[in-house]
Design a protein around this nucleic acid. Structure first.
Length: 258
DNA sequence: ATGCCGTGGAAACCACGA
């Protein structure tokens, strides 16, 4: 079973690229972030014609997450993170597929930091960590997947010294990520590739992709025991080089079917 | 050190992203 995540940066503007990538790689489950489309403007027909069922949580202009499934039935558990009633940003969607809880997330960017946006990022992170603990307590397989907007370590960025004051790499952010992971989660990419330079995002500016000036900010966190089913993982780097690409590349993992 | 590009929505510019 192949599961992928892709921050599309606009699901409608990205539709040709998204459909080509789905056709070429045929993941079984897909988590999308940054739909940038209201609920009624999600391209349901095109996704359906491509062979995928979809559940999505849209929002006008910003954010938005979706989960697609090619064959397996998919049941929604919930949308939005508990813990802050006034939070109306569409950044979290939770479904059950094949006995696995899939949590598709788009963690706030948090810049400029410090400031209210960074405070929101840290609050959101705390809520995610609480939800993650709740899910772990059920002892069912869970995957936290998506755009975390976190550079976990110096090995996950082309030039760490340039990012130390950035909301993606500040100590508070890395500590929050470490606190979450230490609940017992496995960072799938790092589990298989402990030391390699692996990036999932390259800025549109300054020829970043050609220079390989990238960041690793899209992650799969696997609940205990699920790591034993992890057989492969990678980044579809070439997609970042396609015409009209997102600034993120798709990331994928392959799990042993149970 | 930097929003230089890209997207969406509204309005012919601006907010926002990382």
């Amino acid at each position: 079973m192949k599961i992928a995540t892709y921050n599309v940066n606009g699901v409608n503007g990205r539709l040709p690229v998204l459909l080509r990538w789905l056709e070429e790689t045929k993941p079984d489950i897909v988590c999308l972030q940054e739909l940038k489309a209201p609920q009624e403007k999600f391209p349901e027909k095109a996704i359906s014609d491509a062979g995928y069922k979809a559940i999505w949580h849209g929002q006008k202009s910003w954010n938005g997450v979706a989960i697609l499934s090619r064959e397996a039935e998919m049941e929604e558990i919930g949308r939005g993170l508990p813990g802050e009633d006034e939070d109306i940003q569409s950044r979290y969607l939770e479904v059950m597929i094949n006995g696995i809880v899939i949590c598709c997330l788009y963690l706030p960017n948090g810049n400029p930091a410090p400031g209210p946006k960074f405070d929101y990022k840290l609050r959101w992170f705390q809520r995610l960590t609480e939800r993650a603990a709740t899910l772990l307590a059920f002892n069912t397989p869970v995957i936290l997947v998506g755009d975390f907007n976190v550079i976990p370590t110096e090995n996950d960025v082309y030039k760490p010294e340039r990012w130390v004051k950035d909301a993606l790499f500040r100590p508070e952010t890395r500590e929050a990520y470490e606190a979450l992971v230490s609940q017992g989660w496995t960072d799938a990419i790092r589990h298989l590739y402990p030391t390699e330079k692996i990036y999932t995002f390259w800025d549109y500016f300054r020829n970043a992709y050609a220079r390989d000036a990238g960041l690793r900010i899209d992650h799969f966190l696997l609940s205990p025991k699920l790591d034993k089913r992890l057989i492969a993982a990678g980044v579809n780097r070439d997609v970042r080089g396609w015409e009209k690409s997102s600034d993120h590349a798709p990331v994928w993992i392959e799990l042993l079917d149970k």
